[in-house]
């Protein structure tokens, strides 16, 4: 997101006491927005689930028959299971890379940046200032066969002379990591900036090594940000198809590519069943993850 995202995540105010008001005004204020979300978020979700049970024989313009064709799911999973696996794997690796890159950055901004803090925060959100697609295309350039990165790695003998980077899983994961990194850094920074430096000092006063202090004090306090960050990275990354299309090859296709192409080809029921399956997998993984980490106050 933008700087707005940073400030909203960093606002630590407790709810103030207020006088009770008539609930009717509250409902009236809420109504138009909720109505919009019901019509264009909730109803579409129902329409998606319904569409996933249509008879696949039909077309976008002539319509489909509702036949409770559960077989769509069996077909979709049988045919696309490896691609689901690949999507979730790429998204998980990218999320892990975002943690490894994002944590030191968020930590440095929170504790070491001093007067450079605002400048560094702007640099974190700056990539958002220009188009997602244009930025991803510039990775195509950077990773290209004669590009800067490949040349450097060849000079360092880290890449064989006929080796390449573009159109590999590595390129796709690099792109995913790059595109979703700010979503990791901002919530982590929001959590870390709330950590009282006196707690860290107390750790060292009590003869804990910096590593122990980090492990026992700082890190646990940053968990809410870490959980929010991993979700904000993993969820969009698992459905993304821009990176795999622009930086990958036919063997790096992710589930987003398939859903997009099936819709473009007019195969609504199969595409819908893939979408529903993706959503179900994500909800399942998020529930397990959040329960494991044990953070409930996400919203």
């Amino acid at each position: 997101m933008t700087v707005a995202g940073a400030s909203l995540l960093a606002t630590p105010h407790p709810p103030a006491p207020e006088r009770p008001r008539r609930p009717r005004t509250g409902y009236l204020l809420l109504l138009p927005g909720v109505l919009w979300l019901v019509l264009f978020f909730l109803v579409p979700t129902v329409a998606l689930v319904a569409s996933s049970l249509y008879d696949p024989a039909g077309s976008l313009f002539e319509g489909y028959q509702m036949t409770w064709h559960v077989q769509n799911y069996a077909d979709a999973i049988a045919e696309y299971a490896p691609i689901f696996g690949r999507s979730l794997l790429y998204a998980a690796i990218a999320t892990g890379a975002c943690v490894l890159l994002g944590y030191p950055l968020a930590y440095a901004i929170a504790f070491k940046a001093g007067r450079w803090r605002n400048l560094m925060l702007i640099a974190v959100v700056a990539p958002f200032f220009t188009s997602f697609l244009v930025r991803t295309l510039s990775w195509k350039l950077l990773l290209g066969d004669n590009g800067f990165v490949a040349d450097t790695l060849r000079t360092l003998h880290l890449l064989s002379p006929d080796g390449y980077l573009l159109a590999t899983p590595l390129a796709v994961i690099t792109g995913l990591t790059y595109n979703f990194l700010p979503f990791m850094v901002l919530p982590l920074y929001a959590s870390l900036s709330k950590v009282d430096p006196q707690l860290i000092e107390a750790g060292s006063d009590l003869y804990a090594s910096p590593i122990t202090t980090f492990r026992r004090v700082t890190f646990p306090l940053s968990l809410p940000g870490l959980v929010a960050g991993t979700l904000l990275t993993f969820i969009p990354a698992s459905g993304d198809f821009i990176n795999s299309e622009l930086l990958g090859n036919p063997r790096t296709r992710m589930i987003g590519n398939e859903i997009q192409d099936l819709f473009a080809a007019g195969a609504l029921p199969v595409a819908a069943s893939l979408s529903v399956t993706l959503m179900a997998l994500i909800v399942l993984m998020v529930l397990v993850y959040v329960r494991r980490v044990g953070t409930e106050d996400l919203v």
Partner: peptide
Amino acid sequence: NVFVFLPMASPEIVLGSSLLALFVN
């Protein structure tokens, strides 16, 4: 609160295909 949060927690491809399913229907 939770209802408003949900669209932000859904992958774009799912939001997009849901809307398309609605428009087609």
